[in-house]
Computed example of a mutant assay.
Amino acid sequence: MLEFQISTIALTVLNLLILYVILRKLLFGRVNKVLNDRAALIQQTLDEAHGEKQKADELKQEYEDRLAQARSEANGILAQAKTRGEKEYQAILAQAQEDATRTREQSKARAQAERDEMLRTARREVAQLAMEAASKVTRKALDSDSDRAILDDFLAEAGEKK
């Protein structure tokens, strides 16, 4: 069986205590230092990542604000362009209507002038024919200005009655 001797137990306990003190001084201090350094590095990396995330969020917000401002400006420019386009359209339309009215009036004036000229020509021809008919009926020449004036008055009165 096993025998327990106090001296062996005491020496074993003493050896363990000495070993523990030596290991604590030499090994555990370094391991703890490495673990603490590693924890500090991890915490520093986490802090840097958090800072970078905040910067990224700020840049994102700034970008979104600028984008919203650019969209607003684009909408304003588009509205101004629409307004200018509408004004130009109205101006061109008014000018076209004015040109059409002027062209219509000129055409009417030309047509009236041509009509008046045709009526004068027709009256002259009718007067000439009436003079020739009257001269054949009376068998005398009607060349005097007074005879022509009488015929013009007659034709003018006949034209007014129509």
Rank of each mutant, 00 (worst) to 15 (best):
Q61W: 03
K60S: 11
G76I: 02
D152R: 01
L119N: 14
V31M: 08
A122C: 02
E125R: 11
T12Q: 13
M118F: 07
R71G: 06
Q5P: 02
L11R: 15
D47G: 02
K55A: 02
E132A: 15
L151F: 00
A158S: 07
A40K: 05
K53Q: 13
R124M: 14
E52G: 00
Q54R: 14
A149G: 04
E88N: 07
L41F: 09
E160K: 14
L17E: 04
L19M: 12
I9H: 09
E98L: 13
I150S: 01
A133H: 09
S146Q: 07
G85C: 03
I92D: 11
K140D: 10
I22T: 13
Q61M: 13
R102L: 05
Q106R: 11
N36D: 15
G29E: 15
D47I: 00
E105Q: 11
Q90D: 05
L35S: 12
A94T: 13
L17K: 11
E125Q: 12
K55W: 00
L129D: 13
G29L: 13
A49T: 03
A158T: 09
E117R: 06
I18Y: 06
E160P: 00
A40I: 04
L16S: 08
M131S: 14
Q97Y: 05
L23K: 13
L119I: 09
A111F: 08
T101V: 05
A79E: 10
N36T: 07
E73C: 03
Q80L: 14
A96I: 11
S146D: 13
A134M: 13
A130D: 03
Y89T: 06
N32A: 11
D99F: 01
L41Y: 02
K161A: 12
I77G: 04
Q112W: 03
D147P: 00
E105L: 08
E105M: 10
I18Q: 10
A49L: 04
F28D: 15
N75P: 01
A68N: 11
K161H: 09
A39L: 14
A94D: 12
E3S: 09
R139E: 15
V126Y: 00
V137H: 12
A141V: 05
Q106Y: 01
T83M: 08
R110M: 12
N15S: 15
T8K: 12
A133T: 13
T121C: 09
V21C: 09
L23H: 14
N15W: 08
A94I: 06
Q112R: 07
L59M: 13
L155Q: 01
Q43M: 03
T138W: 05
Q43V: 01
D152H: 05
A130L: 04
E88F: 04
S135H: 01
R30T: 10
